[in-house]
C-alpha cells in the first residue's frame, strides 16, 4: 500500500530520518514507537505526503490536533467531510448548521463521548476533549487509511482503550505513532521502533515482548 525505499528527511540541516525502507500492506495496524525526537512524527508526515501523492483517501490526526479554536466542535468535526460537498453547501452549513450533518456529527461525538459539547467553541474545551474532537474529525473523514500521531496522549486509560478500539474498527489500515507500548502491543499487528531517525525494530507484534520494547525508552 505504501512503500518507502531508503528514504531520508532533514530539516534545516539536521537529519530527522535516514535510510528508511518500509512496506506497509493494506489491512495492517502499525505502531511507530520510540522516545521523543526519534523521528515518529517526521515519518508520519512523510508517509502522509507519500500517500496523498497516490491520491488515496487518507484520514489524519495530527499531534497538535489542528483544530480551529473559534469554531464549534460541530464545525470542526464537519471539516472532515468538506471535500465531499460543494462549496455552497459547506458555506451554508457554516452559517446555519444543517440537520443532516448535525445528525452525523452527533452520532460520531456520541461514540467518543463528547456529544454534550456539540455546539461549544473548541477554545472552551479541555485538552482531552479537544483531542477527541480531532479524533471525531478523522472518523467523519473516514477513508482507506488513518495516520494518527499520538491520538490518545491526553486521554485517560479507559478513554484510550475505547478510542483505540473505535479507530481500529473504523479504519482498515492504520499507522499510529504511540508512546504507550502496551497499547501498541494490544491493538497493532506490527511495531516499528525508531531511534535517531533510524528503524531499529520492525517486527510482528507476536514476536515482541514488553521489556524488549521498553528498552527503546531506556527503561
Amino acid at each position: 500500500m505504501i512503500k518507502l525505499n531508503a528514504a531520508s528527511v532533514s530539516y534545516k540541516g539536521k537529519t530527522a530520518l535516514s535510510n528508511i525502507t518500509l512496506d506497509i500492506q493494506a489491512g495492517q495496524k502499525l505502531a511507530l514507537v520510540g522516545h521523543s525526537g526519534s523521528g515518529k512524527s517526521s515519518l508520519l508526515k512523510l508517509l502522509y505526503d507519500k500517500q496523498e501523492q497516490s491520491a488515496k483517501n487518507t484520514a489524519l490526526i495530527p499531534q497538535e490536533y489542528g483544530l480551529v479554536q473559534n469554531l464549534s466542535v460541530f464545525h470542526n468535526v464537519y471539516m472532515g467531510q468538506l471535500g465531499r460537498h460543494p462549496a455552497w453547501y459547506n458555506l451554508l452549513n457554516l452559517i446555519k448548521p444543517l440537520a443532516k450533518p448535525i445528525a452525523q456529527v452527533s452520532d460520531i461525538l456520541q461514540s467518543v463521548k463528547i456529544s454534550d459539547k456539540l455546539f461549544e467553541p473548541v477554545a472552551q474545551l479541555s485538552g482531552g476533549q479537544q483531542q477527541r474532537t480531532a479524533i471525531a474529525r478523522a472518523l467523519m473523514h473516514s477513508g482507506d487509511i488513518l495516520l494518527a500521531d499520538e491520538p490518545v496522549s491526553s486521554l485517560d486509560e479507559s478513554q484510550s482503550q475505547l478510542v483505540m478500539k473505535l479507530l481500529c474498527s473504523q479504519f482498515e489500515t492504520i499507522i499510529f505513532s504511540l508512546h504507550d507500548v502496551d497499547l501498541a502491543l494490544k491493538f497493532c499487528d506490527r511495531v516499528i521502533g525508531l531511534d535517531h531517525g533510524q528503524v531499529i525494530i520492525n517486527a510482528n507484534t507476536e514476536s515482541l515482548n514488553r521489556t524488549e520494547l521498553l528498552k527503546l525508552y531506556g527503561k
Binding site: 462549496a87 457554516l94 473523514h141
Partner: peptide, 12 residues
C-alpha cells in the same frame, strides 16, 4: 497537513 483548499480553506 490535511487542510482543505480554495473556498473551504478560506471559510473554515
Amino acid at each position: 497537513q490535511d487542510k482543505c483548499s480554495g473556498l473551504n480553506l478560506y471559510f473554515f
